[in-house]
C-alpha cells in the first residue's frame, strides 16, 4: 500500500515479471557502462579533458605568435547582427600546435587545416565561458567547453572538407548570438 503503512511482512523479493525486468535493466546498464571505455579505446572520438592552466594574457601572446608565424591572408567573417570583419587566416603545418581564442564576441583566428591530419588544437577564452561548436557541411556538429584560464587541448583530425562555422553555445553576454568564427578544411 503506498499511502498507508505496509503490512509487517512487506519485505519480499521481486518475482515473476518484475524480477525479469530488473535483470534485463541491470544487463542493459552493464552494456551502457562498457560502451564508454570501449569507445574510448577503440573509437575515434573522445574527450580527454587535457588542459593546462594559463593566464588569459599569456594565451593571447601565444596565439598572436602563432598567427604571425602561420598567417597566409585574411578572410571576411560575417556576423548575424554586426558588420563583417577581416580576420587573419592561419595555415599551420600539418600535425603542429594550433591556437584558437574565444572572446566576447568572436573566434580568432580563422584556421585553414588539411583533411586527415591530426593537429593539437589549443583553445581558451580571454574573458567569459564559451561553447566551441563547430557546424557545417554533411551535418558536422561537434561541441566542447571553453573556460578562461584553461588551455583546453584537443587532438583533432578533420575528416571532411569545406568551410565550417564556429558558433558559441555557452551564454557569454550581450552579443553572444553574434559570436562566429571559421574553420576551413582542404
Amino acid at each position: 500500500m503506498s499511502i498507508t503503512q505496509p503490512p509487517a511482512d512487506w519485505c519480499e523479493p521481486p518475482h515473476g515479471a518484475e524480477k525479469m525486468w530488473i535483470g534485463l535493466s541491470l544487463v542493459w546498464c552493464i552494456v551502457l557502462s562498457i560502451a564508454m571505455p570501449y569507445w574510448h579505446l577503440k573509437g575515434k572520438q573522445t574527450s580527454s579533458g587535457e588542459a593546462y592552466k594559463v593566464a588569459p594574457g599569456d594565451f593571447n601572446t601565444r596565439t598572436e605568435k602563432f598567427v604571425q608565424a602561420t598567417r597566409t591572408g585574411t578572410m571576411e567573417v560575417t556576423y548575424p547582427n554586426r558588420a563583417p570583419e577581416k580576420v587573419p587566416v592561419c595555415e599551420p603545418a600539418p600535425g603542429s600546435d594550433i591556437y584558437l581564442i574565444g572572446r566576447a564576441w568572436r573566434w580568432y583566428p580563422v584556421l585553414k587545416l588539411k583533411k586527415g591530419v591530426e593537429y593539437r588544437l589549443h583553445v581558451s577564452s580571454l574573458d567569459f565561458q564559451h561553447g566551441l561548436s563547430v557546424q557545417g557541411e554533411q551535418g558536422l556538429n561537434m561541441n566542447f567547453h571553453v573556460l578562461p584560464g584553461y588551455d583546453h587541448v584537443l587532438r583533432i583530425t578533420p575528416t571532411t572538407t569545406g568551410e565550417f562555422t564556429i558558433i558559441c553555445n555557452e551564454f557569454c553576454g550581450g552579443e553572444h548570438a553574434d559570436m562566429r568564427g571559421k574553420i576551413i578544411v582542404e
Binding site: 530488473i22 557502462s33 574527450s47 580527454s48 579533458g49 587535457e50 567547453h145 573556460l147
Partner: peptide, 29 residues
C-alpha cells in the same frame, strides 16, 4: 562536464557509468 577541460576521461566515465546507471536502474524499476 563531459566535454570540459581539466577533468580526465577516466573521471568522466567512472562517474557517469556505474553511478549514473544505478540511478537509471532505479527509474527503470
Amino acid at each position: 562536464l563531459l566535454v570540459d577541460p581539466g577533468v580526465s576521461a577516466e573521471w568522466k566515465m567512472w562517474n557517469t557509468s556505474y553511478a549514473l546507471y544505478l540511478a537509471v536502474l532505479a527509474s527503470m524499476i
